[in-house]
Each structure stands twice: as structure tokens, then as C-alpha cells.
Design a protein around this nucleic acid. Structure first.
Length: 278
DNA sequence: ATGTCAATGTGGCATTGA
């Protein structure tokens, strides 16, 4: 079974490219971020004709998350408990929730498609929102794993944090000034490791960016960021046999500014047409 | 020059967000 995450930066602008990739790469489940549309605007036909069912959470032209799956999807959640909301110019609790989280169960795997708030600037209210959002996600994840320690759980998406200095190739990011690299953001990300989640992609693919800004030749210069991650619980990470970052998807006509990140899993009851090798 | 890209409304350019 192959599962992936991809910030598609508008699914309406890229549906053919995304579905072509799904079919070509034999992907079973894709977590998408930044679909930038409401469910009724989603190009569902293209996915369904290729054999994928959809779970879609989009409220406006901003944000939006979705799953495409070849296997049945159950237990759909459009937010996690405690998830904070945001409204520009306002503070405090009770603000409207944005379409940044979608949870599904597929083949007993609990999967989340997550689009972590950007933060915008260190002194912007969006930055405090980002840190709070990550803290509440961490809190929920710890509670979930405390209740179900053997759960195969994966948090997949655009984290908008570059955890290591080697994840930063974009020279416009300045320590002390820029988001994505500040110590509080990195600490918020590292809290998930303390909660027992690990990054199987990092283990298998230590090098490589997942995002390159459209501006200033960032991709040809390979001045990108590694900000898209799949973090797994022990039961999930135990299933991982391979991982890959699909850098070629940044090439060609009308690419997203992010590329897909993939993990291969072995499931006990896997219906696989390849022979077992002992 | 934040030198690109996408969605929307203020609409054939400006604004917002990334």
C-alpha cells in the first residue's frame, strides 16, 4: 500500500496532473492540502473515473484539505478536538475554524491531512495562531495515543516548519526574522517526536526539499525548503518499507510549488500481486 | 521589484494569501 501527501496549491488548476501522478505511481491514498475550493467545486469526476473515492473539506477559496483513496474511507473528521480558529483582526476563543485538518480511517490506518497555518510574520497574529494550532494538535495526538497506544496513526501534510538547518535552502529565510525556522516553531514540531511520533521519510530519505517558491528561480537553483512531512505513531512507522520525495513533480507545465511525499507500507492482509520473497 | 501563482471582486486590474 502506498500513501502520500501533497500540497496541490489549487486542485482545480492541477486535477489532471495530480490524477496522472496517482495512477502512474500506483498511489492508494493521497492526502491533499490547499485544494482552494469548496466540495461542490472539486473536480471529483476526474478522481472517481480513475478509481478514487474522495473526502473533501473546503470552506472558501483559501486552505482546504482532502483525501483521495482507492480503499473505503470511514470516520471522517473535519477538525481535531481543541483546534483553534482564526479571523483576521480578532483574537480570543470562539473564532471560526478554517479548513486545515481532515481525519479519515482507511484499512485501520488513522490518517490526517493537515495544512498548518503559515504564520506570515513573527509579529503577526497568524504566528501565534500557528503555534497554538500546533500545540493543540500535539495535545490531541497525545490523548489519542494514550487511549489507543497501538493505533497506526499518521499526521501528513504541509507543516510550514523547516525543522533542521539542512531543510532550508531558500536564502530569503533569515534567522530571527523569518517564520518556518524560528525556535518556537521548531520546538512545536519537535514536540511530536516527544509524543512518540517519528518521521520515517527522514530516516529513509535524509536529503531533499519538498517546496520551492515560484519566485526568483528557486527550483532551478534548488533553493527550497523541506516542510512537508509524514509523522507516524510506532504502529504506523513499523509498517513502512520505503519512502520517496517526488521532486520531478516540480518540473514541467503548471506545477504546484510543493511535491508529493510518499511512504510504502506493508499490511498483513495486503492483497498484493507480487510474490512474497523470503 | 515579493521579478510567481491562484482565486475573487473592487473586474480586464487590484487585493489577498502563500
Amino acid at each position: 500500500m502506498r500513501i502520500a501527501t501533497w500540497n496541490v496549491n489549487s486542485i482545480r488548476a492541477r486535477s489532471a496532473r495530480v490524477v496522472d501522478w496517482l495512477v502512474r505511481e500506483d498511489i492508494d491514498v493521497l492526502a491533499m492540502q490547499e485544494i482552494k475550493c469548496k466540495p461542490e467545486q472539486f473536480p471529483s469526476d476526474v478522481f472517481e473515473e480513475a478509481g478514487y473515492e474522495l473526502a473533501i473539506h473546503g470552506l472558501s477559496q483559501w486552505n482546504g484539505v482532502a483525501f483521495a483513496s482507492r480503499h473505503p474511507v470511514t470516520d471522517v473528521a473535519t477538525s481535531f478536538p481543541g483546534m483553534p480558529g482564526f479571523l483576521k483582526g480578532q483574537e480570543g476563543p470562539g473564532l471560526p475554524l478554517e479548513a486545515r485538518a481532515l481525519g479519515v480511517t482507511v484499512n485501520d490506518l488513522r490518517l490526517w491531512s493537515l495544512y498548518v497555518p503559515n504564520g506570515r510574520a513573527l509579529d503577526d497574529p497568524h504566528y501565534a495562531y500557528k503555534l497554538d494550532w500546533l500545540a493543540k494538535l500535539d495535545e490531541h495526538t497525545r490523548a489519542e495515543l494514550a487511549a489507543r497506544p497501538d493505533l497506526a496513526l499518521a499526521l501528513m501534510g504541509d507543516w510550514n516548519v523547516a525543522p533542521l538547518d539542512s531543510d532550508v535552502g531558500d536564502p530569503t529565510l533569515v534567522p530571527g526574522v523569518s517564520t518556518h525556522i524560528s525556535p518556537p516553531e521548531r520546538a512545536a514540531f519537535e514536540a511530536f517526536a516527544a509524543a512518540g511520533l517519528t518521521d520515517p521519510v527522514r530516516t529513509l530519505v535524509p536529503e531533499g526539499f519538498t517546496y520551492w517558491d515560484y519566485k526568483q528561480l528557486r527550483f532551478p537553483r534548488n533553493e527550497g525548503l523541506r516542510i512537508d512531512f509524514i509523522l507516524g505513531s510506532p504502529a504506523f512507522t513499523d509498517l513502512v518499507t520505503a519512502a520517496s520525495i517526488h521532486r520531478n513533480e516540480r518540473k514541467g507545465d503548471a506545477p504546484s510549488d510543493h511535491v508529493p511525499v510518499v511512504v510504502d507500507l506493508t499490511l498483513d492482509d495486503e492483497d498484493d500481486d507480487r510474490p512474497m520473497i523470503f
